[in-house]
Structure formats: C-alpha cells, structure tokens
C-alpha cells in the first residue's frame, strides 16, 4: 500500500522566519516523501504553525525555500493549493455563509471535487446544511473544515493542531476520516499536534521542533524503540562526566544518574560500566511523551 516513493511531497531547505528580533523558524530542512504521514511535535511557540503557514504560502519567508509536490510555494501557490487540503488551527470560514453555501463556494474554486464523497462525509459528520457557520459549535466548524479539505481529493493534507480543544468523540471522528483518506490512495499527511497519542497512532515519521529548529526527525518506531531511559546507580563519591553517545538528557541526584539515550545499544551500557564505577544499570522503555519532553528539556539545559 505505501511504497516509499523517491518523490517528495513536501520539502523545505533552510526555511527561516523572523519576527522582529526573534527567529521563529531557524533554517528548517524537511523531507517528506509521498505517501507518508509526518507528525510535527513541539512545545507552543516552537515554530510549527509558522512553518505550516509558510508552506501554504500565507506567510512570507525570510530565507530558504519550500516546495509542495514539486511546486515552489512562493512562485506558484495557486496551483499548489489545488492539490493540497489544509485544516488550520483557528477557523475563519465566512460566518454569514450557510454550510451548503460554503461547500458550493469552495466547490467552484477547485478543479476537482468529489460530490459523492462530500455528501457522504456531510452525512457522516451530521452537519446541518442550512445552518450558518456562526451558529456551528467548535467541533462542527472543525469537521466542516476537514470536509472542505478532503472533498477535493488532495494529494497532500496539512493539518495544524486539528484536534485541539475537541472532545474525544469528535477527535475520534476526525482521525477516522483522515485515516480513511490515507487508506484510499497514496496520500501524504503533515500534521502538527499536542496530542502525542494521536501522533503515535498516525505518524510514520516524527519531527520534534524546538525554537524553530528540528531536534529530531525519524521513524516513529525507531524513535520509540531506540530511545531509552538509563538509570545508573554510581558508587559513593563517584560523579558523572562524559555521558555515552546519543545522550539527549541527563540528571544526577543522590548517586542516581538518569540519562535518556537516543540510538541506544548494548554499547551504551558497556560504556557506562567500563567508564564509571556503577552499582547497577537499568534500562527502561519510554513513551512518546517522555521522549519528547526529554528532547526539549535536554536542549533547554544545554542552551
């Protein structure tokens, strides 16, 4: 089903954005192959939304370039948008329009539109066609936005914190719909989210962003299986020094040296046992939330 094509759905090179003196996105380089799902995680203000807005041609870049489906977003955004479905974090669909009017409006703007799919999803989402957007609840607006994004059968779906503030039921409906579109065809999905469980479910590759920089970009399983927490209990008087290769975070307290090591292997334990007087070395698996937090904490500590 998912042949990793050599074609790239999304690529950025040294993408940079500055707001006044602050660098929101710092030479970000991304490569997202066609047919994969990329999860973009990072603390608030890390630059995820800024990056996505630049990809959608809604924010001027200060440096670097971005291409979606091979199309340069700064030179030919209109052509790119025909093939991309986007769901933003904040919605500003014309509040005076009724649901049918919004659908009719968007339908006229896209070259291709699947009426059958649109009708199906409209029914599935239980959206009242005659209701005005201003009378829709938040969850309904998000569902409408997703409907608009998938009805024109885009090759790329870009979702910016799509499920934030939604109740678990609507979140499940949303994920289900996104999954169905992934299953239909070779669709590429880029989504940023704070709900790490969603990212762990859906993403083939995860990118951890912090202060506009990519701290890590690798396959979800690799990140989870390869990143481990190591607990080394040192003998009295011993203090830690040079940590093993791949350490992204560490803390020493009362003889206990905790480390989070990326790319963990038996060599890591061997290194610790050889270099330091250890009483015991234990290895723990980590969930995505811990991995993410340790990456960020580690970067903060070294900054």
């Amino acid at each position: 089903m998912a042949e990793t094509s050599s074609r790239l759905a999304i690529e950025t090179d040294d993408l940079t954005k500055r707001f006044g003196g602050k660098t929101a996105v710092d030479h970000l380089t991304l490569r997202i192959p066609v047919g994969t799902t990329f999860g973009f995680i990072g603390p608030n203000g890390a630059g995820k939304t800024t990056t996505i807005k630049m990809l959608m041609g809604m924010l001027r870049m200060n440096g670097g370039q971005a291409r979606v489906l091979g199309i340069d977003v700064s030179t030919d955004p209109a052509r790119m948008k025909q093939r991309v479905g986007y769901v933003p974090e904040l919605h500003f669909i014309y509040r005076w329009m009724r649901v049918t009017e919004v659908i009719g409006f968007c339908r006229a703007l896209y070259d291709q539109w699947n009426d059958r799919l649109c009708a199906e999803v409209l029914k599935l989402f239980e959206l009242d066609p005659n209701k005005k957007v201003k009378h829709l609840s938040k969850g309904m607006v998000v569902k409408l936005a997703l409907l608009l994004a998938i009805a024109h059968e885009p090759e790329v779906l870009i979702l910016d914190e799509p499920t934030s503030g939604l109740d678990p039921l609507i979140r499940e409906e949303f994920l289900d719909s996104v999954l169905r579109t992934i299953c239909e065809r070779q669709r590429t999905v880029l989504f940023s989210s704070h709900t790490l469980s969603d990212v762990q479910r859906m993403a083939d590759t995860i990118g951890i962003v912090y202060e506009g920089r990519l701290l890590a970009e690798c396959a979800t399983e690799e990140l989870l299986v390869g990143t481990k927490r190591v607990r080394a209990v040192l003998r009295d008087g011993a203090t830690p020094g040079e940590p093993p290769a791949g350490t992204i975070w560490q803390r020493f307290e009362r003889r206990e040296w905790l480390l989070t090591v990326r790319g963990f292997s038996p060599d890591t334990v061997a290194y610790l046992k050889a270099k330091y007087p250890v009483d015991s070395v234990e290895v723990f698996d980590l969930g995505l939330e811990d991995v993410f937090k340790d990456f960020v904490k580690g970067r903060r500590a070294s900054a």
């Binding site: 959608m56 041609g57 809604m58 955004p77 209109a78 948008k81 025909q82 986007y86 933003p88 904040l90 919605h91 500003f92 669909i93 014309y94 509040r95 968007c106 703007l109 896209y110 070259d111």
Partner: peptide, 17 residues
C-alpha cells in the same frame, strides 16, 4: 477585520483573481 481573508488565503484563487 473578521479574518475571513485567512480562510480565503488557503483556497486556490490567486491574488489576481
């Protein structure tokens, strides 16, 4: 003013249109 321009911005029509 009501930010609906941000909705229009991610739809296909070019600025010229």
């Amino acid at each position: 003013a009501d930010r609906s321009a941000e909705f229009l911005a991610y739809l296909p029509p070019s600025r010229w249109a």
